[in-house]
Simulated assay, not measured.
Amino acid sequence: MSEKNSKNQLTERAGQAKIVRRIVFIVIAVILLVIIGVSLGGYIYITSALKPLEEESEETVEIEIPIGSSSSSIGQILEEKGVIKNGTIFRYYVTYKNEKGFQAGTYELSPSMDIDEIIHSLKDGTVIKEPELTFTIPEGTWYEDIISQIAEAVPYEEEEIESQLEDEEYVKDLVERFSILDEEVLEADIRYPLEGYLFPARYDFMEEKPELTYIIEQMIERMEENVVEFSEQLEASDYSIHELLTLASIVEREAQHEEDRPIIAGVLFNRLEEGMRLEVDPTVAYAIGEHRYMTSLEDTEIDSPYNTYRYGGLPPGPIASPGVNSIRAVMLPEDSEYLYFYARPNGEVIYNDNYEEHRRTQETYRSEWEEAEETE
């Protein structure tokens, strides 16, 4: 090859490299402009959503906030009533600022109010109307008892509530709409699909007869809100939400004192990791379908997938509605070497890391339960 041809090729390659560099530069510039544009647009939109929807408006809107409403449902109500621009941004803003303590009731709000003014009004609790209907579900309540307690407070019969809760098409619809629910609630072994998903709390409604589906969905939404608070732990866990709620329900039924909940949760995880049966009495009571003060040897032999004395792993689903402290305990269990725990009637829980010590504990304190049962 001649020296001239070599120089021409070098010149040509240098020209191609220059073109490639220009193309890369242009592409990068375009991408950066798009990112900047999207970010700027998002910033402008979010900023505008925090400002008054109509600053000069003299209109006031009557808005009802049910007791127990989540920030998500409050945002949705405010958006639908036309006092804020975006309910989702309201929810994230409230979460970011860690705003809590919203009061239920009927408020007069205006599109001329900014987000902070609306938040202040909802926390101040100056309402113009008291709720028409109220009920409270205690933590650890069984599904069947929840139905009875709701029926006592609302103008629906137990049969109506039960029929709605167990309607297969309705439950499938809920599974599609709520991230906390998945196909596990539809499995054949599940006694009640929504057992453990109806959050225990006080609920207030401004109508004398709210839609039954609205009542149910408020309870599921509250549970979802309390669970997704632990999204980081959920993502890192090897267990599904359904499994974690099942564990939380067991902790709820086992622990009388708050300080024991994370320790008991840790023991349950330890037993599962060791391949041991959980062998917890509340699952036996649930399998039998009766609240038991103490569990007999005969009780532990009942053939039910909920009986953790007979079957390994977790029961098919939750055995009660866990409260936020039991949920937190399962999401943030206390690490220990304990594999056994024994609850005394006075609420004290004794922990052991070997079976021999656990048996001695049982023998020492079992008579207390027999005496307590006799006095019942």
Rank of each mutant, 00 (worst) to 15 (best):
M1P: 15
E12Y: 12
A17H: 15
K18T: 14
I19H: 06
R21P: 00
R21N: 13
L40C: 14
G42P: 10
Y45C: 04
L53N: 01
E55V: 13
E64G: 01
S71K: 00
Q76P: 15
Q76L: 10
K85Y: 09
G87A: 07
Q103N: 09
A104S: 13
E108I: 01
S121P: 07
D124K: 15
V127Y: 08
K129F: 08
E157F: 13
E162T: 04
S163D: 09
L165H: 03
E169K: 15
L174Q: 04
V175P: 06
I180T: 07
A188P: 13
Y197G: 10
P200Q: 11
P200M: 05
Y203T: 02
Y203N: 00
D204L: 00
E208M: 04
P210A: 02
L212H: 03
E217Q: 13
E224I: 12
V227I: 15
V227T: 12
V227R: 11
V228I: 14
E232L: 10
E243N: 01
L244N: 06
Q256D: 12
D260N: 12
L268V: 01
M276R: 01
P282H: 11
M294P: 05
Y306M: 05
G312K: 05
V330R: 08
L332A: 09
S336W: 09
Y342V: 02
N352T: 12
Y355E: 07
E357S: 14
E363Q: 15
